[in-house]
Design a protein around this nucleic acid. Sequence first.
DNA 1: CGTTTTAACTTTGCCGCTCAAAGTACTTTT
DNA 2: AAAAGTACTTTGAGCGGCAAAGTTAAAACG
Lengths: 99, 99
Amino acid sequence: MKNFIANLNKAFESRVRLGIMSLLMVNDFVDFGTLKEQLQITDGNLASHINALEKLHYIEIRKQFVGKKPNTSFAASVEGKKAFSEHLDALEKLINQSN
Amino acid sequence: MKNFIANLNKAFESRVRLGIMSLLMVNDFVDFGTLKEQLQITDGNLASHINALEKLHYIEIRKQFVGKKPNTSFAASVEGKKAFSEHLDALEKLINQSN
DNA sequence: CGTTTTAACTTTGCCGCTCAAAGTACTTTT
DNA sequence: AAAAGTACTTTGAGCGGCAAAGTTAAAACG
């Protein structure tokens, strides 16, 4: 129970990041439009969070064409899943301690 | 499963606030020094987070003397407990969906 | 063709927030 | 008298989220 806060990952503190990762834990390869719609944020905002997560190697990006339209999809990397899992564990400890 | 992010409370996004509230959910009236030690942050930083939580009426402050030393203690208000509980519920939904 | 639309960004810039450090006030201890 | 303890407040740097507007490239439209 010492330093129970230290195990929280800074990268996942924002609601948007939390949302992105939780969607990518369940579904592999969610596309840009779907994420934008689910999270109800602007495309620029989404792009910047995606960019941040990719720089941390927490997600992988796949660009392709679906029919004639460009389509960018994202998946959580092994490293990303591990990091997010650890973050959730830390949160779970807070929750179990608090209610 | 719609807007599962919208139920997260902005006030509890930071690790420090998360830590303060989770401590106050379990123990009523934790004092300044204890919080500072548990969270390992500077006194100024703690004071500002405390101030923010008080402005939201999420915590209550009790000032007294213990022996000859001033002692400030904090407790989660009913409103604060409710808000934090709802935040945790939203987090729990993320977790259960994600692992 | 020229214009408009769509998808996915990038850039810009504001605003708010976190945080450490330093300063303050008041009291106790030495 | 000086130092130390408690609890702040103030200051200021730095980061980070966000919307809005600009960009690119291809597609659809007329």
